[in-house]
Design a binder for these strands. Structure first.
Length: 112
DNA sequence: CAGCTGACGCATA
DNA sequence: GTATGCGCCAGCT
């Protein structure tokens, strides 16, 4: 790989999301200062459709904390189950106390 | 190059 | 809350 594809960079951010926290597409896009929230979803989808595994895509939700990407998982409840088993409560396909669970890329990082 | 798509986000009515 | 329109930009056909 001479150069990282856009999604490669998205993985790096998503993997940086701590357990029990969630982030948004817009936040990732803004952090990378590339593309747009739409690109993040696009990237995650490629990841989930090609690599899947190391990247906790279930910690990425839309700006309202809605599990808008649950349909891409093996099952539409997989995403919620993952979040709940990490300590993130979910109701009506939305993260409970989303504002409190929100994590911004770079938070807690002082290297870079 | 042109046309279509998509796990978004914001403004409008 | 629901529906519509625009901006965004990589990837596929």
């Amino acid at each position: 790989m001479e150069r990282k594809m856009y999604f490669e960079q998205v993985y790096d951010v998503v993997r940086s999301v701590p357990i029990g926290r969630v982030t948004t597409y817009g936040a990732i896009a803004d952090y990378l200062a590339l593309g747009s929230a739409r690109m993040v979803g696009w990237a995650l989808r490629n990841m989930s459709a090609q690599f899947d595994g190391d990247v906790p895509a279930h910690r990425v939700v839309n700006r309202l904390g809605e599990l808008s990407g649950r349909h891409q998982f093996p099952t539409p409840e997989y995403m919620q189950l993952m979040l709940e088993q990490e300590g993130v409560k979910v109701e009506n396909d939305r993260v409970v106390d989303f504002k409190g669970r929100f994590w911004h890329p770079g938070e807690g990082m002082d290297n870079g």
